[in-house]
Simulated scan of single mutants.
Amino acid sequence: MSRRYLTRAAGLCLAGAMFCAASAFAQTDATPGEPTVLKQNGIVYVSGGIGEDEVAAMKKMAAQYSLRVLVAGQGGEYLSDVDVTIASAAGKPVFSARTDGPILLVRLPAGRYRVSAASGQASAAHAVVVPAHGTAQLDLHLKQ
């Protein structure tokens, strides 16, 4: 290969790498602190609440969800990476996820549910009634 070809190829690779880096930076900068909305078996949810920006974003989003779960430890410290399962009143699991922060927002149909959370040896469970309008709020404090 000629030296001219190699120089041109290297220049194009460098330009491409700079473009990709700039694009990634621009995407990250466009939505600071905003958590990702996910969907599982038709159920829309979002999890997060780490950092002031993300907490503020989730507070704004909360009215769009029928259930807000806040997960904390026995001493009141906020927890993330907690396995949360929601079951119907009949005991059938309808939702399961690992949290990305202490706040979990879930869009469920109105009804009675049992919410369980576990992290290591600590766990908690509580019944909740999700209203047809508005948001049910549940604070779970995991205990060993």
Rank of each mutant, 00 (worst) to 15 (best):
I86E: 01
A56K: 11
K60L: 10
A90W: 09
Q74T: 10
V69Y: 07
R98Q: 13
D100Q: 10
I86P: 04
I103Q: 05
Y78E: 13
K59N: 03
S88I: 07
D83W: 14
V55N: 01
I103R: 09
A90S: 15
S66Y: 09
G101R: 10
S66T: 15
M58P: 03
T99Y: 07
L70F: 02
A72N: 12
T85Q: 11
M58I: 01
T99L: 12
D81V: 07
V84L: 08
V106Q: 04
A90M: 13
M58Q: 05
D100H: 11
L79P: 08
K59M: 00
R68D: 00
S96Y: 02
L104P: 03
S66W: 12
K60S: 10
G101P: 08
I103L: 11
G91E: 11
Q64M: 02
T99P: 08
R68T: 04
V69I: 14
E77I: 06
S96H: 07
K59V: 05
D100N: 14
K92D: 10
L67H: 06
K92T: 10
V84M: 07
I86T: 05
V84P: 03
A89L: 10
M61N: 02
L105I: 04
A90Q: 15
A72I: 14
Y78L: 15
A57D: 00
S96I: 02
F95L: 07
M61V: 02
S66K: 09
